[in-house]
Nucleic acid binder design. Sequence first.
DNA 1: CGCCCGACAGGCTTACATTT
DNA 2: AAATGTAAGCCTGTCGGGCG
Length: 321
Amino acid sequence: MDAASQASPIGLKAIEETVSSPSTKGNEEVDKRILTSKRQAQNRSAQRNLRQRKLQHVRDLEDGIELLHGKQTLLHTNNELLKLQLEDLKIENQVLRATIRPTPMLVDAPMPVCLSRSSRLSLSDRSGPRTKGFATIMGTNCCSSPESDTTVSTQEARIPIPRRAHKKSKTGCRTCKQRKVKCDERRPLCLNCERHFTNLETCDFDELGHTLRAPVAPTAPRVSRRPPSSRDPGSSPRKTLMTKKSTGQPARATKVPDGLTINAAWQALQNHPQYLLDRVDVTRFCEGLRRLAAFNGTALVFERARVLMLIEESSQISSAE
DNA sequence: CGCCCGACAGGCTTACATTT
DNA sequence: AAATGTAAGCCTGTCGGGCG
């Protein structure tokens, strides 16, 4: 077919030259052939384009799905972070309530649930920078660049898609077999026949099954000894690609050895000797902590060793400055 | 006239049963 | 397990017809 289409331009040229001579019966035929050939070429390219567009459309939709998956994951993670931040603020609030020195003005007055930053700073001279720094750990900064995180590798080079793997039907109707189209085996009327023959009520199913070969001695049903090969549907390149794309797992769980929760990490900081000597730059620590954060599927976790190392680093930088 | 679409035919690949 | 045979059905060019 390709050969024909490739050869057609040359053929056309030759034909056009002959057409310029006085019209005869033969020339009419040539004329007709030219039209047919042009029509064929037109149709061929139109159909090719159409199918290409169709394919592209499907790919675009698939890419869209993938992108949405990514965004969903990000939103989920952000939500978890906000929950943790809320928890942290609750704890902090409790700590402040517990440690606040009762003043005549506040003894009976109920503590507001949310203290403003300035009021909190005024409550405790130590909690100032620490509170501020910690509060920004899970602040909006950590989620500020969703695009960079969700960028899906849509720019991957498009490789030619191999022929789609398929499961063979065993009892398809005769019409489908004849038309060489996939039969959905629906009874009494398959989908293809329903579409094509509006007044048909039942398909012609071959009850003998798909094989016309002489049956072997009736024994127990054969179990295929064929091992799963690379040609099996489940392992076809396209299928693999699809399953890879749509794992359905919204957030990738990260395994963190000896993982600390956010509260534990905070505790670790508070118990650290450097911190007790007030040598830790809490803001730097918080920024570092953000980078260490890993999502284990349910909550954020931080590797203990790294957290400790981070405290050391933060204190070194702090003391150096 | 060009484009699009559905249907079709037939080549070709693949899945699967059977044999060696 | 490998080789072989065969049915299923994917893929693509072609055709007829509708539409702007």
